[in-house]
Structures are given as structure tokens and as C-alpha cells.
Amino acid sequence: MAAGGDHGSPDSYRSPLASRYASPEMCFVFSDRYKFRTWRQLWLWLAEAEQTLGLPITDEQIQEMKSNLENIDFKMAAEEEKRLRHDVMAHVHTFGHCCPKAAGIIHLGATSCYVGDNTDLIILRNALDLLLPKLARVISRLADFAKERASLPTLGFTHFQPAQLTTVGKRCCLWIQDLCMDLQNLKRVRDDLRFRGVKGTTGTQASFLQLFEGDDHKVEQLDKMVTEKAGFKRAFIITGQTYTRKVDIEVLSVLASLGASVHKICTDIRLLANLKEMEEPFEKQQIGSSAMPYKRNPMRSERCCSLARHLMTLVMDPLQTASVQWFERTLDDSANRRICLAEAFLTADTILNTLQNISEGLVVYPKVIERRIRQELPFMATENIIMAMVKAGGSRQDCHEKIRVLSQQAASVVKQEGGDNDLIERIQVDAYFSPIHSQLDHLLDPSSFTGRASQQVQRFLEEEVYPLLKPYESVMKVKAELCL
């Protein structure tokens, strides 16, 4: 049975990233139509530049190519590739079939990587351009969430054990800070992308030097003109047959890092959902379990974690691919890159769409948070109580021993009897502590235990987050809708 299948058929496997999760716009960027249309555009740009620099290419040939950029006979191309065992030459023939007058000058002087690699770089750039505003929107939604809850005390956790208090907004800023680093890295790697350009079979530009009869300047002009037509500021000066596969490492490393950030955020949300302090959106008709109707599973956060793990592992592909590119190139890269580049971007696209949807509907339960604080705060307040007693004339050592005994009794009630923490009640009825009984409410005010959390939130948002989001103001209103 021949390899390949009808990918629109229910009898043929289709990647869930495309069929179930990723956005239509990201799927289109990695589609065959987008790819092969870009090949034709690159052939047109090459012909236009070659004509401008004096090669015998007519206006009629150029116009014929322009008129057929979208006229792609995919069936013919597939048949040609089956016959020739070469995808680029299959599309040269297919393009030439609908451009008979231009057929002889299509791909003039070029090698397969002229269309293959340059198209990949265009796709990487455009895919990054799709991700950047999506990530900015996630940051914006979380920034709104953090600002609104900047002063809401909550129990902090280290080692997932109760620690000092923080605020809900401050905790959210930990998430935002990681995503801001990801946004900066995505922008950097996007701006650092260079075009492969017009380089020939081993990167020496020998074929173009021959076409222009040894004119170095025209060869350099050709490279520059096509690079500018493709919208790049610069091209690699040095290439082998391909652009260095280190570029793929750079791009997928940034995406993998984004995956790590999203995994951490969504894990926190899942843990908070278990504590009943916070939940992701839950639709009115949504079913959490087929057997347990009360369940409210954090399905979206779980999906993000599941896909983020996949995204983090994909960076190993370009690392290994770059390491086995012998001399000017081997074909070890080809099949692998067809999979890992598309999957990385479709996965990143999915987790950003999902995280935006989550961040637009996060639900906080202040009463649950308050109750958990009441359970733990008495123990945390013991040092403040000791200091207040010393100020009232008591002995630190005597007070410490009193607190120690009462704390152990209260802990026994919590752990052995399943009761509430009654340390404060014990202190309130103990005559030894009568000098500070009137101060206990103040000493137990949760806001006095959150330090500068709310001020940190305000400063972080104003100095770091809002300036970073400013270039994306025009796209901030787009909502994230999930079908599944």
C-alpha cells in the first residue's frame, strides 16, 4: 500500500493539533497551500530580480507567473513527485505547466533550498508574528487579574506546605514575570531571523556568478533584492546548502521555554482548584465526569500541561538535527523538520489560546482563602504575639514557653481530632496574655502579614508589564474561544 493518505478522510490519521486544537490561522501558515504558494512567490521574486539585473526574462513571463501564483494543481504535483521522487522539481514542473512561456526560467540558477529553506524562514517569521500578540493578550488578562487582587491576602506555599502570606495578585505576578520573559525572547528570536537568500547549491553562489558572467556586484544585488522582497532586513552571508540548523534550535528553545512557563502556571491553577481557592472557567453544560456528576475538573489547565510537556520535548529534535548536518548538509534534517517545526508552533498556539481562555474567566473564592488563612495564621502570628507581650512588660522566655504549650495543644486538636485551630481562643482565655487581649485582632490582621506584596504588584505592572504590552494595544480586544 502506498504511503500517505487522504487526510480529510475519517479513515486516515490526522494530527489532533490540526484537527482538534490549533487555530485556523496557525494551521494555514503550515498548510501545503501556504507552503507551495510561497515557493511560487519566491520563484517570481527571483525572476523579477534577475530581470532587473539584466537576464533575458520578459515582462510577459513575469506576468504569467504572477497570474498563476494561486493556480496550484495539487493532484498534478503529487503525481509528479511520485514520478520524480523530488518535491521541488515536482512543483517546478507543475508551475511550468500553467506558465508555459515562463517554464524555462522558473528556478533559474537556484537549488531546492532556495524555495525550501527560504519558505521555512518566512513561515517561522509569520508563525512567530501570530504567537506574539496571543502571548501579549494572556499577559494582559493576567495583569488585569493581578491588579484587581493585588491586596487580597492568601496563604503562600513553599514545598506545598503553608508559608508566609502573600497576595493573590502577587502570586499571579510570578506567572506574568515568566511570560514577559517569554514574550521578550519570542520577539528577540523573531527579529534575529535572517533570510537564507540566493546562495546556490553549497552556499557559494557559483551558479549565479556564472549567470551574471562573473559580476560579483550583481550577485550581491540579486541576494539583497530577493531578501528585501521577502520582507527581511538581512540575509546570511555564510550558508551551506541550507541555512544553519542552529536557527531551528533557537526558535524551538524559546517555544519550549514558553511551554515550561505555561505548565507551571496551569499546575498552580490545578492545585488551587483542589484547594477550592480558584477555578478555571466551567461552562453551564460542561460535564466533569461521566460517573461523578459533582466533579469540576480543571480540564483546560490539564490540557495545557499535557501539550506543554510535548512542546518542551520537541527542542531535542533540532538539537540532534543540527549535530548531524555533515559538511554542507545531509538530508537527516528533512523529514524531522517537516514534523517538529509545525508541531512546535501548533502546540504553542494551542496552549496560548487555551491559557487566554482560562485567564479571561478565572474565578476566585475569597471566603475559602480566608478560612485557610484562619487555619494557619495563628501559628504564624506567634512571633508577633511574643513581641507584643514583651512590649507590655512580659518575659520573652516565659511567653515563648506559654505559646509553645498552647500551640501544641491547638495542633493536637487540628491533627488528632480534625478540629479547627483554636490557638487564639486559648490565648484569649489565658490570664497571662490579658495585657494584649485587646491587640489580638490587630495582630491577626492578614494584611499585616503580606509585606509589600501589593506595592510590588503595582510597581511591576507599571514599570515592566504595561510598557512591554504597549506595541500590542491594537490587538488586545480579541477574545479566545474554545470549541473543545
Rank of each mutant, 00 (worst) to 15 (best):
G4M: 15
D6E: 15
S9M: 15
D11S: 08
S15F: 15
E25W: 05
M26D: 03
C27Q: 08
C27F: 11
V29P: 01
D32G: 13
R37C: 09
L42A: 04
L44G: 08
L46G: 02
A49D: 01
E50A: 08
P56V: 13
E60W: 08
Q61N: 10
L69I: 15
D73A: 09
F74W: 11
F74E: 14
K82N: 13
H86C: 00
D87I: 00
A90P: 03
H93A: 15
G96R: 00
A102C: 11
I105C: 12
I106R: 00
L108P: 01
I122S: 03
R125K: 15
L130M: 10
L132G: 14
A136S: 15
L142M: 14
D144E: 15
T154Q: 10
L155P: 03
G156Y: 00
Q161K: 01
Q164W: 00
C172A: 09
L179E: 01
M181C: 13
M181E: 09
K187W: 09
D192Y: 10
R196F: 06
V198A: 13
T204Q: 15
L211Y: 09
D215T: 08
H217C: 11
L222R: 00
T227Y: 12
F236A: 07
Y243F: 15
R245W: 01
V251I: 09
L252W: 04
G259I: 00
H263T: 14
C266E: 06
C266N: 08
L271G: 06
K276M: 06
E279R: 01
E283G: 12
E283W: 03
Q286P: 02
N297V: 02
P298E: 02
E302L: 01
C305R: 02
L314M: 14
V324A: 12
Q325G: 12
F327A: 14
R329E: 00
A342L: 07
E343N: 14
F345D: 04
F345V: 11
Y365F: 11
P366N: 10
I373P: 02
Q375G: 05
L377S: 03
E383A: 01
N384A: 15
I386W: 03
D398N: 12
H400N: 03
Q409D: 09
K415L: 08
G418C: 05
I424R: 15
F433W: 05
S434N: 11
S434V: 09
H442A: 14
D445Y: 09
S447P: 13
R452N: 11
V457Y: 02
R459K: 11
F460M: 08
F460T: 06
L461H: 00
Y466A: 13
L468H: 07
K470M: 14
Y472V: 12
E473A: 11
E481D: 14
L482E: 10
L484G: 13
